[in-house]
Each structure stands twice: as C-alpha cells, then as structure tokens.
Amino acid sequence: MASEAHAAEGATGYIIHHLTPLRVGEGFWSLHLDTLFFSAVLGGLFVWFFKTAAEKATSGVPGLAQNFAEMLIEFIDTQVKDSFHGNSKLIAPLALTIFCWVFLWNFMDMFPVDLLPLIGSLMGIDYLRVVPSTDLNATFAMSISVFFLIIFYSIKIKGPVGFAKELMFQPFGPWLLPFNLLLKLVEEIAKPISLALRLFGNLYAGELIFILIALLPWYIQPVLSFPWAIFHILIITLQAFIFMVLTVVYLSMAHEDH
C-alpha cells in the first residue's frame, strides 16, 4: 500500500499519501507507529496535566490548572451521575480518560494538514498520519476495551447465569430463544462497532476535507479551511463527548439488573 501511494502522483497521490500510516511489519503483526506514537504522547500529555493538577490539589483556592481539571471532572461527574446510578470507582475515571484522550486525538486534526508530515519528512519519515482517531485501530481499541468492560460488568453484576438468561429470554420470552439470542448478540456487538466507526468516520471525513481544501489554490484555502476548522472544533468535542456518554450509558445498562 505504501509503495503504491508513493508511486501515485497528483491530487490522488497527495490524498493517499496523507491517509497512509507509518507502518512497520506485514500482515496482522504490523504496527502503525504514528498512531501509537501520537496517542501515547497525547495520553502522556493528559496524564501529565491532570497529575500536576492532582498533586497540587487543595480544597482551598485552586490554581489555574486545578481549576481547569476540576471543571472537567465536575463536567464528567455530572454526566456520569446523570446516566449511571450504580456505584463504581471505574466509570468516572474511565469516562474522563475517554473524553480527554479522544478529544486530544481529534484535536490533532486542528494542526495544518501538511505541517507535521512536513516536519516528519525533514526527519526522514515518509508517511505520517497525525490524527489517531483516523486510524480504525485506535478507535476500535478503545471501543473493544469498552466492550470487554460491558461484558465484564454484565457478568459481574448479573452473574453468568443472569447474563445468559438476559441474552436468551429477553426481550421476547423463552419461546423465541434463538431469535432473542440473535437480537441480543447483534445489539451487544453493534455497540463497539458503532462507537468505533462513528468516531473514525467523523474524523476521517473531517481530515479528508482538510486535505481536499489543501489541494485548492492558496487564495481559496483560508475561505474554506477557516470555517471548516471552526466547525471542526465543535465536531471534535462532540465526538469525544458522544464516545464518553455512550460508554457510560452502555456500562450503566450492563449494571442494570432486569
């Protein structure tokens, strides 16, 4: 794939080049280094910021960083309390991590499309896709983790038998068992897939539009990229928020015993 993109010229080549990840290895056991690198750096940024705020945390007058961190925490806490009524030490921190991390991923979209790849190429890196959320691996990694948590909590709260019963006897009762099972399985599996694809699709499309705008003559670019960037601020926040809220909702559904 990489060699094909390299060979292609013109607009198509430019687009393909921008959407090709920095990849090592072949087949399944290959890694997208750019996705791993940027998401790790952004995760580190998130952890560093919040850790600094947490270390200085005081119940007195908060500093600027603590204020910001507390604002986010209150916001997340409100969201979690709105949809999740159980008692869990995991859900709120999980939601915070998801919201901040996804937001930071998405925020990489706000950098000029050519800036980081240009710096990369100066350093000898040919391919660089800077937005981790435009990599299905990143979005699926998160949604599959959430999926595991859903399964884990379903079994933990309802018990293996209870969970199996829910899969088999709902919503139409024991007489339609196969149909119930099929419906439930689709419902469960649709959760991580929809989570991952929603985020991926939005950001991929957004990035693609930035790339397309970058192909236009320079005097048209600002007219289009400026409003799109502003609109995109909304999209990236919204997508992070949706991912977080749906995670909380799914997990609270897993906690509900019928």
């Binding site: 998401s39 990143a138 990694a141 998160m142 599959i144």
Partner: peptide
C-alpha cells in the same frame, strides 16, 4: 486492523488505570 489495536488497548488500559488510581 492490525497489532496497533493491541498496542492501543494496552495504552488505553494503562491510561484508565492511572487515571483511576492517581488522578480522579
């Protein structure tokens, strides 16, 4: 989809654990 998925999941798990333990 490739091994990046696994790497990302590990990173995610670490981040969530850290947040749960030291940040929240």
């Amino acid at each position: 989809i490739n091994a990046t998925l696994i790497g990302q999941m590990i990173t995610f798990a670490l981040l969530v654990w850290f947040t749960m333990k030291y940040i929240w």
